[in-house]
């Protein structure tokens, strides 16, 4: 659009200013995660923006190795919540991708399930909080409260719209000549889907699965309502890192927050190209 030098200078200045402000929260959390207790407890004038004596004590602490300076030992360590988050998010992704991919193919090729696009958009539209009462009752009835598979099931349903819409746009884009050729060769429809279509779709499947995983991993509200003790996920567990006796364990929370934040950021950057497609339900493709 504009090529002048002054515009270039303005552009860099504006972007870097915005970026500097936008990075403050992230930088602060990283810094807190590596601060020893004396430094993360400091406030006001004693505040330091970068750890003077960087340490891994906070990470050791949340995994149960009681740091020398922290008198309290954790009743429950972060290992189990991390496992819970991993299991629920992974199997939730499996459910969403399995049902979503199959349905997207069924609609894209055979015209079945014409009600699904709209139904799934509406599912996406409603606040989860507005359907949680029946879900909590049903989950209690089915014995799914406070289990990783109960959480995985609801995650699979909640992210099904994204999996379905993403895969639908990919299938719609895919040329049919190759499938048709295989059909002429005498392959069954089912075999064509399993042996030709799905392998061709591997990149699309991978980026959609990562996208869905990020969404599942990011949940807080559902886990807050459906897990109580054994299978609480990372964000729910984080609240337990403070008590009336110890106050806010800032350093420990920052360390755990960093562990929770890293996977989705890496995955998100890896699938940057598909983010727009996923977020806009395929209305925009890159």
């Amino acid at each position: 659009m504009n090529r002048s030098l002054s515009f270039d200078i303005f552009r860099y200045a504006a972007i870097l200013t915005f970026l500097a402000i936008s990075l403050i929260p992230t930088v602060w959390m990283i810094s807190m995660a590596f601060k020893p207790i004396a430094e993360w407890q400091a406030s006001g004038a004693d505040l330091t923006w970068w750890p003077n004596n960087p340490t891994l004590d906070n990470f050791r602490f949340i995994f149960g190795e009681s740091g020398s300076e922290l008198i309290v030992a954790l009743e429950r360590t972060a290992g189990r919540p991390i496992l819970a988050s991993l299991l629920a998010a992974s199997f939730g992704t499996l459910i969403a991708m399995g049902a979503g991919t199959a349905a997207a193919y069924g609609l894209s090729r055979f015209g079945y399930g014409g009600n699904l696009p709209l139904a799934l958009i509406q599912l996406r539209l409603f606040p989860p909080m507005a359907v949680m009462i029946p879900v909590m009752i049903m989950w209690a009835f089915l014995g799914l409260i406070d289990t990783w598979y109960g959480l995985a099931l609801i995650y699979g349903i909640v992210t099904l719209p994204f999996a379905f819409w993403l895969m639908k746009t990919f299938f719609d884009d895919m040329p049919r000549e190759i499938e048709d050729a295989a059909l002429v060769e005498g392959c069954s429809r089912w075999r064509v889907f399993l042996r030709i279509t799905l392998p061709m779709m591997r990149p699309a499947l991978a980026s959609s699965a990562l996208f869905v995983f990020i969404l599942n991993w990011s949940d807080y509200l559902i886990a807050l309502l459906l897990t109580t003790r054994d299978w609480v996920t990372i964000p729910v567990y984080m609240a337990s890192l403070s008590s009336s006796m110890t106050g806010q364990l800032y350093g420990a929370k920052a360390a755990l927050g960093l562990i929770a934040a890293v996977p989705p950021v890496i995955m998100g950057i890896a699938i940057q190209k598909q983010l727009v497609r996923g977020l806009t339900f395929g209305a925009l493709k890159e």
Binding site: P25, W28, Y220, A260
Partner: peptide, 16 residues
């Protein structure tokens, strides 16, 4: 780098 905030878990962002 600009996209990083939207990928941070919202609960963690709240904590930040």
């Amino acid at each position: 780098t600009l996209l990083v905030p939207m990928m941070v878990v919202p609960a963690v962002a709240g904590y930040m």
